[in-house]
């Protein structure tokens, strides 16, 4: 859709920091402005690692390859700088921060996104938060709860979408957002993402998922299959449907893992 891709990943290799455990083994991926991509893959294929590496998790070390985000080398940036640049990761397992209200957390985050020296007006913030929560059908009292403290699976994921709605990223990476959600909760979350997409058609999305069902609600333009730390097939939405029918087994047999271990018989 656009000449300069929002995200360009080339030959990305990454391992768990301070170990020899390689997880990404030469991954290539390009995402254009306003595109929705889905990466599907079996457990342990490195999907979530990719998400964390993109967001700058200190627990992983990139050993080779490049990641360019809107023309900028993403890998030299700290996690907070990546957020300011426009990358957002919706966590698979959102973390609990006891004693910190969602309102306080979001206010700090939104303030951090403002240009140096600009002070967030507390009333403006409050208006925006109220409006965003209304858009996501969330009760205003939710903002007073402590971040993810005692939340249900669905509440945690909605809280991720609320953060996304407040920070308005250029690229949203959604790590197994569908996991642990029943169908009603999944619909609510997908509905929120679709509203944000309607609002900002330039936002790019990378959906990471194990199952096809999320893709019934958020329609991807491109679907990639990831096995053993690299993309083994790319195509349109039909790829997801094939996977749903045949499973990942086919890919595992054609693409033996990088370290040469035999595929599961």
């Amino acid at each position: 859709m656009s000449d300069v891709p929002v995200l360009r990943i080339e030959g990305l290799e990454a391992k768990v920091a301070e170990s020899e455990l390689g997880i990404l083994n030469g991954l290539d991926l390009q995402i254009g402005k306003g595109e929705i991509h889905a990466i599907m893959g079996p457990n342990g294929s490195g999907k979530s690692t990719l998400a964390k590496v993109l967001a700058g998790h200190p627990g992983y070390e990139v050993t080779s390859g490049t990641v360019t985000f809107r023309g900028e080398d993403l890998l030299t940036l700290e996690a907070d700088e990546r957020s300011l640049a426009g990358v957002f990761l919706a966590f698979q397992y959102p973390v609990e921060i006891a004693g910190v209200s969602i309102a306080n957390f979001l206010r700090t985050a939104v303030q951090a996104h403002l240009p140096e020296g600009e002070e967030l007006d507390i009333f403006d913030f409050s208006d925006i938060l109220t409006e965003r929560m209304a858009m996501l059908d969330m009760d205003v009292t939710f903002a007073e709860r402590h971040v993810n403290d005692g939340f249900s699976g669905g509440e945690k994921k909605r809280n991720e979408i609320l953060q996304m709605a407040m920070l308005k990223p250029k690229l949203a990476v959604m790590d197994e957002t569908d996991s642990g959600l029943d169908i009603d909760a999944l619909k609510i979350v997908a509905d929120g993402v679709n509203k944000l997409l309607a609002e900002d058609p330039d936002m790019s999305v990378l959906l990471i998922t194990h199952y096809q069902r999320l893709l019934d609600y958020i329609k991807p333009h491109h679907v990639h299959v990831m096995v053993d730390g690299r993309i083994v097939e790319s195509g349109g939405p039909e790829v997801a449907l094939e996977l749903e029918a045949n499973g990942y087994r086919t890919y595992e047999t054609i693409e033996p893992s990088a370290n040469g271990s035999a595929p599961v018989a």
Binding site: G56, G59, D80, L89, G99, V100, N104, T108, Q163, L167
Partner: peptide, 24 residues
């Protein structure tokens, strides 16, 4: 990581966690 991934500086994130801890 969770807090910094939202654009919050690491030392500010640390202070936020500590403040949350003593909040009660």
């Amino acid at each position: 990581f969770y807090l910094t991934s939202r654009g919050i500086r690491a030392d500010e994130a640390m202070a936020m966690i500590v403040r949350g801890f003593i909040e009660p």
